[in-house]
């Protein structure tokens, strides 16, 4: 294990996540370890690309005052990113709590998510892996939604890429949280008011939806 004095808190699909001391405070350390199943050359290419992409996109969001973890340090050679430890539950976990199940709380989450995504797309960051596990609820009075896990993110100004980004979230919503169509509508409404090109993107989203549904063909 490459993380000094770290405590493993989670193994995601991409990386192991540790809490470790960094310059006198607690930090999150994300370690992308080699995937045994992947060809070494492919693994190396993907891992180094994703470490840099994540750090770059987090930084870009931070500059635009979008709530994301602050990057403290990047160690490309060991595939480590040190970043701010956020106190709060993921939206997925929060939606399962009593508080998070109320109508008021869900409307608030939806507005927050829509606003955050709108701002992110305004600066041409495409997240690439939007799920309710990759959105955190900051545990303070602001209850702000924090975007995390930018491993599949990239910079693009294409309407298509942004629409697919929303589509990925929509699918994650409908599969993980059945019967939340209204909430997703609220997200899109809030996105509509905060994203500059939302009109075109939402129109494209309609097209993308049809594309996904075609896939129930032969077997």
């Amino acid at each position: 294990m490459a993380v000094h004095q770290g405590t493993l808190i989670k193994q995601g699909a991409e990386a192991r996540v540790y809490i470790a001391p960094f310059c006198g405070r607690k930090a999150i350390v994300k370690e992308r370890f080699a995937k045994a199943y992947r060809h070494p050359a492919l693994d190396k290419k993907l891992t180094s690309r994703r470490v840099t992409q994540e750090a770059r996109c987090l930084n870009r969001c931070q500059k635009a005052l979008i709530d994301t973890p602050t990057v403290y340090m990047v160690d490309v050679a060991s595939s480590l990113i040190y970043m701010e430890l956020i106190d709060g539950l993921s939206v997925r976990e929060y939606m399962e709590t009593d508080e998070g199940s109320t109508q008021a709380a869900r409307t608030h989450i939806a507005e927050e998510i829509g606003r955050a995504l709108g701002k992110m797309h305004n600066i041409d960051v495409v997240h690439g892996d939007l799920t309710t596990s990759n959105l955190l609820m900051r545990n303070n009075d602001s209850k702000s939604v924090v975007l995390i896990d930018f491993g599949l993110s990239y910079v693009s100004n294409l309407v298509e890429d942004k629409a697919v980004d929303l589509y990925v979230l929509e699918r994650a919503f409908s599969s993980t949280h059945p019967n939340t169509e209204v909430m997703f509508e609220q997200i899109l409404a809030s996105y509509g008011t905060s994203c500059k090109a939302s009109k075109q993107i939402l129109k494209k989203l309609e097209e993308v939806r049809l594309r996904g549904r075609k896939r129930s063909m032969l077997g």
Binding site: L46, G128, D129, T131, L152, V164, V168, R171, A172, G212
Partner: peptide
């Protein structure tokens, strides 16, 4: 090319 979009 390697194209993964979230779980798609």
């Amino acid at each position: 090319p390697y194209t993964v979009k979230g779980m798609d």
